[in-house]
Design a protein around this nucleic acid. Sequence first.
DNA 1: TTGGCCATTGCACCCTCTGCAACGCGCCGT
DNA 2: ACGGCGCGTTGCAGAGGGTGCAATGGCCAA
Lengths: 273, 273
Amino acid sequence: MSQTVDRALTILTSLGDGPASLEQAAARIGVHKSTALRLLRTLQEHGLVHRQSDQRYRLGGKLFSLAQQALEAIDVRQVAAPFLASLNERYGHTVQLAVLDMGEVLYLDKVESRYPDRPGTWSDPAARIGLRVPAVATAVGKVLLADLPEDQLTAFLDVQDFPARTSTSIRTAEEFRAELTGVQRQGWAVDQAEYQETVNCIAAPVVGPGGAAIAACSISAPVGVAPIAELSRLLPELLCTVEAISLAYGGSPTPRWCENRCGAKHVAPASHI
Amino acid sequence: MSQTVDRALTILTSLGDGPASLEQAAARIGVHKSTALRLLRTLQEHGLVHRQSDQRYRLGGKLFSLAQQALEAIDVRQVAAPFLASLNERYGHTVQLAVLDMGEVLYLDKVESRYPDRPGTWSDPAARIGLRVPAVATAVGKVLLADLPEDQLTAFLDVQDFPARTSTSIRTAEEFRAELTGVQRQGWAVDQAEYQETVNCIAAPVVGPGGAAIAACSISAPVGVAPIAELSRLLPELLCTVEAISLAYGGSPTPRWCENRCGAKHVAPASHI
DNA sequence: TTGGCCATTGCACCCTCTGCAACGCGCCGT
DNA sequence: ACGGCGCGTTGCAGAGGGTGCAATGGCCAA
């Protein structure tokens, strides 16, 4: 829409691939050096890029504060937090909250499993708050995609490829559509080691006031800790939790496309004030 | 430098204060609605802002990936990580790595204390990776400011105020300059509950190839766990650690302004591959 | 010292950004 | 139901500002 800003943001994004000199940065987006210089200067003034001692540019520290503020602005997260904690406390598995953002799954919150196989900090690449993962290979992704209107879903699947991440990965758009149909019928989704060979996952949608799935909540565990059959036993609990979150958020208890779903009694969140 | 980009980034920053409608966003930076619309659209195309269901704009999910990439691009962090872990393992206190960014201290890494008084996750507001705190009230800040060239330091102190955060906070620029002189002489800094009433801290600089302090490493502990005298006993260990990090990073063992400093033997980092 | 490389600056052209005004749309009150 | 109101959106003409070229400056290595 705005060429100048577009170029500046393209440079910013390109710096995500690693630091770059002025010439490199200019070459990456195909503009003259002097143009890139002005854009980078402006980005630098705002702290979004940083000039290191070797004069190369890299992403700046302001991004941390913005990311933090972005997280705080997403209010589903606030509402869901105590429910996630409660779910984690009861079974000890990893509980996550995610949304769909620009065609990818974006993790908003995470309560770490009790069996400490991974530190679970920022630097943990496995699953981190703010992490983006492909939607088609995860249970939360299926749940969120199942809520998309038909035209958006079609547009999305058209540009999507289905790499064989694991032996159980879904490999075609047709297969995935069939999977989504099942998700819509039952109101939840499962990921049987489709993204990571060693991790199973079940997910269900958080429904907002408009009846749309605004987020998804998942329980995941290493296959060694909980095989899919055992994880499935927690399904009623997960469904109760997402219903409770949905109601707390002012939404409907079930997504508009869900035809039937187990209706267990609601579980109050742990007493977090 | 570039008016258009500057306005776009100003809008972006202003969204950190909370979601805003188009008119509000336009008013915040004092431009016409249509101008703000185009800027916001461009930001939105790049995922830096998100338009929520009530049509208001808020910070977008792309910021998470950028923040993550920004963290990875800072290579001091990679180099220092095993040393920090080692230091934490030996004494159990919180160990942090920080840099100076836009006149503020920016925490790059943190190894949590073993005494679990705080969860220490993203949502922990006390001290988080990516958190920014005022430089004049922290030990790491003193160490990093002590390395600044005189003119930059003067410019910095001119616009700096010294609020009384705690009873021991430094209150004037003169007092702070005196403190810095001491820091330069001894090569390390201390924070005796100057930022938070209950937390003491010692810090020392990581020195880069150019002889400048590129980062600072600190050990901190609640006053109840370790009074300042006890914390000071860890000073030799801290100094050894920053020397080792500096050498691993290709820098000098001591900062260019450090006149004398205890020279204990280097400690190898824990065997992280 | 010299050469090359890269960041930086000055400048003229003209692209594109801007603000205005008109329009569309949903909401609320009468 | 109607009309007014508030807000987002669009088209357009003018000019402010962005762009690329070319020249300068500074740094490092040969």
